[in-house]
């Protein structure tokens, strides 16, 4: 037995330096009917309306939207519009740069006006020190550019009056 042997064949395998963002590191789902049964939520959002599902049997309002009602297991659900205004329940700043995200940015929890729905959302257009619990915020539709050919959208919120 020898420590080295010049006769052992050597070859090289090349791993690519960069690959396209793999499907499972993309935070946003594919939003069309070929990929998700809640595509109507995304279709409505693309058209400018925040919505969710409500159970036609027991009346439960869900968020996030569902295909089966967690209250009564009915699958007879219908899409209903949600308010586009709400108030800040809590908020913070995201640092630490999750891959593909443009940190730092604001994030928070919004109580939608007049319905029992509380959702998390990125809070655009204000620094942490400029915000307070209870501040009124309103919907911003965000179009997602890349990496698929699909026209994807998501919702964010910003302090009311920012665009006035």
């Amino acid at each position: 037995m020898t420590d080295t042997d010049d006769e052992v064949p050597r070859r090289t395998v090349t791993i690519p330096d960069r690959i396209e963002l793999p499907r499972l590191l993309d935070f946003y789902d594919l939003q069309d009917a070929d990929h998700t049964r809640i595509h109507e939520f995304y279709d409505r959002l693309r058209e400018g309306s925040l919505s969710t599902t409500q159970c036609a049997d027991c009346g439960e309002l869900h968020f996030p939207p569902r295909v089966v009602c967690p209250e009564c297991t009915s699958d007879d659900l219908e899409y209903v519009s949600l308010p586009h205004e709400g108030t800040l329940h809590a908020f913070s700043t995201v640092r630490g740069s999750p891959i593909g995200m443009d940190t730092p940015f604001g994030t928070g929890v919004v109580d939608l006006d007049g319905v029992d729905v509380q959702l998390s959302a990125r809070i655009d257009g204000a620094e942490y020190d400029d915000l307070a619990i209870g501040d009124p915020v309103s919907l911003v539709i965000t179009e997602i550019d890349g990496p698929t050919d699909q026209q994807r959208v998501f919702y964010r919120f910003e302090p009311q009056g920012d665009n006035e």
Binding site: L25, F27, Y28, D29, F63, P64, S92, T93, V94, R95, G96, S97, P98, I99, G100, M101, T103, F105, T107, L119, S120, A121, R122, F154
Partner: peptide, 28 residues
């Protein structure tokens, strides 16, 4: 590679509706 670790940490909530908003543990 901390961004990759942080990205993985956001998916303990519902990734589609909460993790997507950057809700990693410190901000949450």
């Amino acid at each position: 590679y901390m961004g990759e670790t942080q990205a993985s940490m956001t998916n303990v909530l519902d990734r589609e509706f909460d993790g997507v908003n950057g809700l990693n543990a410190p901000s949450f």
